[in-house]
Amino acid sequence: MIAGLTGGIATGKSTVSNMFRQLGAAIVDADRIARLVVEPDRPAWRDLVAHFGEGILLADRTIDRVRLGQIVFSDASQREVLNRIVHPRVREEADRQTADFLRENPRRPVIHDVPLLIETGLYRRMDKVIVVYVDEPTQMRRLMQRNCLSEEEAIRRIRAQMPIEQKKAYADYLIDNRGTLEETRSQVERVWEELKAAT
């Protein structure tokens, strides 16, 4: 069983992913892999520097994620370039990790934690899709608090993604994360039991 886990920015997807991990899921974390594939001198890093210039680098030659974020969140064409460079490398590493997990234990559900699961079409490769949901006002409030953003910056980041209301339509399982942690955990536990039963 391979399930895809997604949500929108500041919906609590990482919290839900950690809950699944604690229950025993094998997690393939696209964000973690994305950081790995852009480490200095790796092919994706070289392509990013060639396109965006050395202004996106910190003193230690790692990518300045804040600077790169400012560029791509204000220009859709630049965001497309970033995605074209990074996504194929992320997918390759995710496939390798999935194969390793399934070799280790074919009866253990594997969950792909992918922010852009729907947008990239990766959801089609999943047996089930889990969407972590909060309404947009909650999303906005959490994002402004978490990242110390102005309302305008928060809106721009939220608008750069598919609206969370649209993502709901793709969900086999919807986890409503507007309540308490305990309420979210009980939903995660229920989904986990169903995934295990279907594996």
Rank of each mutant, 00 (worst) to 15 (best):
L23F: 07
G53V: 13
F20Y: 15
A10G: 09
S14M: 09
M19Q: 14
E119L: 07
E151C: 03
R65T: 13
M140V: 06
L149Q: 04
L57H: 10
K128L: 11
R96N: 10
T6D: 03
R35W: 01
I158H: 01
R103A: 15
L58I: 08
Y170W: 11
V28A: 12
D113V: 02
N147F: 01
L58M: 15
D172E: 02
S74V: 03
Q166D: 13
R142L: 11
T6C: 10
E189G: 05
E153C: 06
R125N: 12
E152G: 01
R103K: 13
Q97G: 02
P106R: 12
R159G: 02
G24P: 02
L117K: 04
H87S: 13
L48S: 09
T180Y: 03
V131W: 00
Q145T: 13
L48G: 06
A169K: 11
D75S: 12
I155R: 15
R125G: 03
G12C: 11
V129D: 02
E136W: 00
V28F: 01
F52E: 05
R61I: 09
I33T: 06
I56H: 02
H112L: 15
T6P: 04
D60Q: 10
E93W: 04
C148R: 15
V188S: 06
V90L: 01
D127C: 07
D60V: 07
P137R: 10
L58V: 08
T15Q: 11
S74E: 14
A171D: 09
A169I: 00
R96V: 14
Q70M: 11
G179K: 04
W45L: 08
G179M: 06
R84W: 00
R142H: 12
I175N: 00
D176Q: 02
